[in-house]
């Protein structure tokens, strides 16, 4: 109640400098939580609040592979190589990598996509991609 009464008085006296509000808020937060600013600066530049866990990436990549018509689901492991272990040809590999793109809402450039020929590489790519969702 007292605070409510004080509010207009305080607001009248406060002058906000026209600096961007985000760093201001962050430094204000830093005063009460010393690590808040550090955390705010260190957070990944992603539109998603919670980044995917590696476990989640692995599970979903495995699922994508298992659902490809040419793949024997029992052979799918996080270490499998598309061609040597799963018997996929280069066209299948394109399909699989495209399916992974779709699953994680990514667009993998050709140069990168050409290199992905195994589950470890696919998992690595998605796990390191800040926009994977």
């Amino acid at each position: 109640m007292a605070a409510a009464a004080l509010r207009p008085a305080i607001l009248r006296r406060i002058r906000l400098s026209p600096s961007p509000s985000l760093p201001f808020a962050a430094s204000a937060a830093a005063a009460s939580h010393p690590h808040a600013l550090v955390r705010w600066l260190a957070r990944p530049m992603s539109s998603h609040d919670a980044h995917l866990t590696r476990e989640e990436v692995v599970d979903r990549v495995l699922d994508v592979l298992k659902s490809h018509p040419k793949v024997d689901p029992s052979k799918v492991t996080p270490e499998a190589h598309f061609e040597k272990d799963l018997g996929l040809d280069s066209l299948d590999t394109v399909e699989v990598v495209m399916a992974i793109e779709e699953e994680f809402k990514l667009e993998i450039p050709d140069k990168e996509a050409d290199k992905i020929d195994s589950l470890p590489l696919a998992i690595e790519y998605v796990a390191n991609h800040p926009m994977a969702g």
């Binding site: 061609e83 280069s90 066209l91 394109v94 399909e95 495209m98 779709e102 050709d110 050409d114």
Partner: peptide, 25 residues
């Protein structure tokens, strides 16, 4: 031993990828 992917093969795969991307639309 698995031969390295040739330039022309890369072009074919890129074309295939292009078709699949366009199909999505």
């Amino acid at each position: 031993s698995r031969p390295k992917i040739s330039g022309i093969q890369k072009q074919v795969l890129a074309l295939y990828r292009g078709f699949l991307r366009t199909a999505r639309l």
